[in-house]
Design a protein around this nucleic acid. Structure first.
Length: 438
RNA sequence: CGGGGCGUGGCGCAGCCUGGUAGCGCGCUUGUUUUGGGUACAAGAGGCCCCCGGUUCGAGUCCGGGCGCCCCGACCA
């Protein structure tokens, strides 16, 4: 993309309404604009990041056998009356009526709908297990939206639902999902630590929330350093083998981790002092096992091996996709702006032409840009060098290729790594190679 | 939902107390200048001062009502 043609409105001054770094930077870098309290429009660069996060989530969900579908944002109230949640959900649910006076709601989550869809199609234990997920906009009429996309009223969530014949199988599904989540967050370039969470009225001990470590997090967190040292991407786990999943689960739950709400001083004191980590975290994922709560209440059954009907055991698993963008920025920025991890950056690199019109500069820039125009942001604007440096830092491209007349006449460009500030003078070919364009 | 605050060119703000021609910085346009970290000068464009009503000769300013937004707390991907 040529910046001179892009819709990338950056702000020099800090918008008054934004309090935390990620919100300020998302507005300043031209990723989002607010349209109403807690509701945001995603501008082109912001949308690109959203898509990249989604892609990683998809790959990792598909990898454990979950299948993507897409359920609507509007749901019939009838569905929720069947589970009993229509009355229970409260004022956070946005309720509307259509022209016939039928009650509808703008979905805050999809347990009822997915259970209904599942139940209408699956009738035998032989078809289990199944895991379905979708990435869809959710609406919750929050009492107090704040911090930009971190607590919006409309937000993008990946929600998955698992169906199993037995408790044991459901536990295996839960563990697969936990592994998938740990891999997702690691690939997104953030440290997310799983912590035991309240299961609410459902009971049981199978609920974990995943918190990204960031100083502006809403919850205090305490955990064993062993949890952030794990490399989940290289850890071999056989997702079809209950024993392998159990072993994996043991390494997660065998280490202390809790939010301030669940913090236990006694257990904490048993963690070796050198491994104790305290900080703040942003909740970006939450997984639950809740048994037959919805299948039973909604009358969804399959025929078991003995011919008797049984209600499948379910779990639900959420990732806050739009919130993650805020969380990633909270965890990765500096005075100058955003520092995108390579995996989610809207563009792989920015090319800064310090002297558009200079033959050598234009030629070298084109030599790079033409290789992958869709994934590079070419700053060809007629602006001062300082403006381009500042905007590139603000937008957080992982690499900056600085092309100025000084080096260009010798065929050299300057490659800057945003995260470290490290700069090296290299040839075009070398720059391409380092950026990862072959 | 309780408490606090704000609404004035695109953005950040002053003006309101004490009513009398709507201002500043940034941004934008044109020209000159500068050319490796938000250059400088000049000339311009751009405003139902959130909305409705009231008081007044006269309201951005005072009064009443509404709407919107932000912050702090109790709740949540």
């Amino acid at each position: 993309m040529r910046l001179s043609k892009a819709f990338q409105p950056t702000l020099k001054e800090v918008p008054a309404e934004a309090q935390i770094a990620s919100h300020r930077l998302m507005l300043r870098a031209g990723l989002i604009r607010q349209t109403a309290s807690g509701i945001y429009a995603w501008l082109p660069a912001g949308l690109r990041v959203l898509r990249r996060i989604e892609d990683i989530v998809r790959e990792e969900q598909d990898a454990i056998g979950a299948q993507e579908l897409l359920m609507p944002t509007l749901q019939s109230a009838e569905l929720w009356k069947r589970s009993g949640r229509y009355d229970a959900y409260g004022p956070e649910m946005l309720r509307i009526q259509d022209r016939q006076g039928r009650d509808l709601l703008y979905g805050p989550t999809n347990e009822e709908m997915v259970t209904d869809i599942f139940g209408a199609a699956i009738k035998s234990y032989k078809d289990l297990p199944k895991a379905l997920y979708h990435i869809q906009w959710k609406f919750r009429d929050e009492v107090r939206p704040r911090f930009g996309v971190m607590r919006g009223r409309e937000f993008l969530m990946k929600d998955a639902y698992s169906f199993d014949v037995s408790y044991e199988d459901a536990v295996a599904s839960y563990r697969r999902m936990m592994l998938s989540y740990l891999r997702i967050f690691q690939r997104l370039g953030v440290r997310a630590v799983p912590m035991v969470a309240d299961t609410g009225p459902i009971g049981g001990d199978l609920s974990h929330e995943f918190l990204v470590l960031a100083p502006t997090g809403e919850s205090g967190v305490f955990f064993d350093a062993a949890l952030e040292e794990q490399d989940w991407l290289s850890r071999p786990v056989d997702c079809d083998d209950h024993a392998s999943l159990g072993e994996f689960f043991q390494t997660v739950t065998g280490h202390y981790a809790a939010t301030d709400e669940k913090h236990d001083e006694t257990a904490w004191s048993e963690v070796p002092e050198a491994r104790r980590r305290e900080g703040r975290g942003i909740e970006v994922g939450h997984i639950f096992y809740f048994g037959t709560k919805y299948t039973a209440s909604m009358g969804v059954e399959v025929v078991g091996p003995d011919g008797a009907k049984l209600a499948p055991h379910m779990g639900s698993y959420g990732v806050g996709v739009s919130r993650l963008m805020g969380a990633i920025i909270e965890a990765s920025h500096d005075e100058g702006g955003i520092i995108w991890p390579d995996s989610v950056a809207p563009y792989r690199a920015a090319i800064l032409n310090l002297r558009p019109g200079d033959e050598a500069c234009d030629r070298l820039c084109a030599a790079i840009y033409d290789r992958e125009p869709n994934n590079l942001m070419y700053d060809d604007r007629d602006e001062r060098a300082g403006v381009k440096f500042n905007d590139a830092d603000l937008m957080g491209h992982p690499w900056q290729v600085v092309v100025g007349p000084r080096g260009a006449k010798n065929g050299l460009v300057e490659l800057k790594r945003r995260a470290t500030g490290e700069r090296v003078e290299v040839t075009v070919e070398e720059a391409l190679e380092r950026i990862g364009i072959v």
